[in-house]
C-alpha cells in the first residue's frame, strides 16, 4: 500500500504542482499589486491585531513581547483555518473534474494545503521582521521550527481529508465548520496565555494539538529554549495520528464520492 501510494504521488506530482501554481496565479492575477498582496495582507492584518490587542485591550503576557507572542500564534492558526477550509470544499468544488477524468481524489485537499503553505511561508517574512524589530532576536533553535511546521501541515492535511469526506455526504458541514473554527480560535491560546485559564481546565486546553504546535514554536522564538523531548513526541504523534486517520477515512469513502456528485 505504501509503495503504491508513493508511486501514485510521484506520478501525479506534476498535476499537484500545476494545481498549486494555478491557485497561486489565479489568486493574484487580476489585482494591481499582484503577489505583493501575499506580503502586504498579513502585514496589515498583523498591524490591526497588534493595535487592537496590545493598545486597545492592553493584553499582555508576562515576560515576553506580546506582539511576537500574538503573531506566532496567529501565523500558525491562520494557516490551519484557511487550509482546512479550502481543503474541505476542494473535493465538492472539483466534482466536474472528478466526474470526467480519473484523478486520485486526495490530490485536491492536498494541493490546497500546499497552496496555503506558500502563503504561510510568505507570512513568516513579516513575522521575522517583527522578531528582529522588537529585539526578540534569533537563536540556533530556530532551526527546529520546520519540525513544528511539518506537524502543523500533517495535522491540517489529516483534518482536510476528514472534512472533505464529510462535506461530500453532508453539505451542511460548510456552515457547521465555520462555527467550529470560530470556537476553536477562542479555545486556542493565541491572544491570551494558558496560565490565564484555571489550572483545572488547563489540561483540556493542552489536548488541542494546535496549541502544542504553537507552544513548540513559542518556546523557541520567545523563550530561546529547546522544546522538551515530551513536546517533540506530543507534536509528532498527534500530527501523525490525525494524518493517518484522515487518510484512512478518505480512502474508505472516496469510491462513494461519485454517487453524490
Amino acid at each position: 500500500m505504501l509503495k503504491s501510494s508513493y508511486q501514485s504521488i510521484k506520478k501525479y506530482s506534476f498535476l499537484l504542482q500545476q494545481l498549486v501554481s494555478r491557485d497561486f496565479k489565479v489568486k493574484y492575477k487580476r489585482s494591481v499589486l499582484g503577489i505583493l498582496w501575499s506580503l502586504l495582507y498579513p502585514i496589515l492584518m498583523m498591524t490591526v491585531m497588534a493595535i487592537v490587542f496590545s493598545n486597545v485591550f492592553k493584553f499582555s503576557v508576562p515576560g515576553v513581547n506580546y506582539l511576537v507572542y500574538l503573531l506566532t500564534g496567529l501565523t500558525f492558526f491562520n494557516y490551519f483555518s484557511e487550509a482546512s477550509n479550502l481543503a474541505m470544499s476542494s473535493v465538492v468544488g472539483n466534482f466536474s473534474l472528478i466526474n470526467k477524468v480519473y484523478i486520485p481524489k486526495y490530490i485536491f485537499p492536498l494541493s490546497k494545503c500546499l497552496f496555503v503553505g506558500i502563503n504561510f511561508f510568505l507570512t513568516l517574512i513579516p513575522l521575522y521582521i517583527v522578531i528582529l524589530l522588537t529585539g526578540t532576536g534569533v537563536n540556533v533553535f530556530h532551526l527546529l521550527l520546520p519540525y513544528a511546521f511539518l506537524c502543523l501541515f500533517l495535522f491540517t492535511v489529516g483534518i482536510g481529508f476528514i472534512l472533505s469526506t464529510i462535506s461530500v455526504f453532508m453539505r451542511d458541514m460548510f456552515y457547521i465548520y465555520g462555527i467550529i473554527v470560530m470556537i476553536w480560535t477562542y479555545l486556542t491560546p493565541i491572544m491570551y496565555d494558558i496560565s490565564m485559564i484555571s489550572p483545572s481546565l488547563q489540561f483540556l486546553f493542552k489536548l488541542n494539538p494546535l496549541y502544542q504546535y504553537i507552544n513548540f514554536a513559542r518556546e523557541i522564538i520567545l523563550f530561546h529554549q529547546c522544546p522538551t523531548l515530551a513536546s517533540f513526541v506530543v507534536c509528532g504523534v498527534s500530527a501523525l495520528v490525525v494524518f493517518l486517520l484522515g487518510i484512512f477515512v478518505f480512502r474508505k469513502n472516496q469510491d462513494k464520492f461519485i454517487y453524490y456528485v
Partner: peptide, 25 residues
C-alpha cells in the same frame, strides 16, 4: 469523454495546455 476538463478561464492558453495536460495525466 469530455474535452477541456479542468480548464481555468483565468489562465492563458499556454498555462491551460499544461494544466489540462496534467489533468489528463
Amino acid at each position: 469523454i469530455e474535452l477541456g476538463a479542468g480548464f481555468d478561464m483565468d489562465l492563458t492558453a499556454r498555462e491551460n495546455v499544461y494544466l489540462n495536460g496534467s489533468v489528463l495525466g
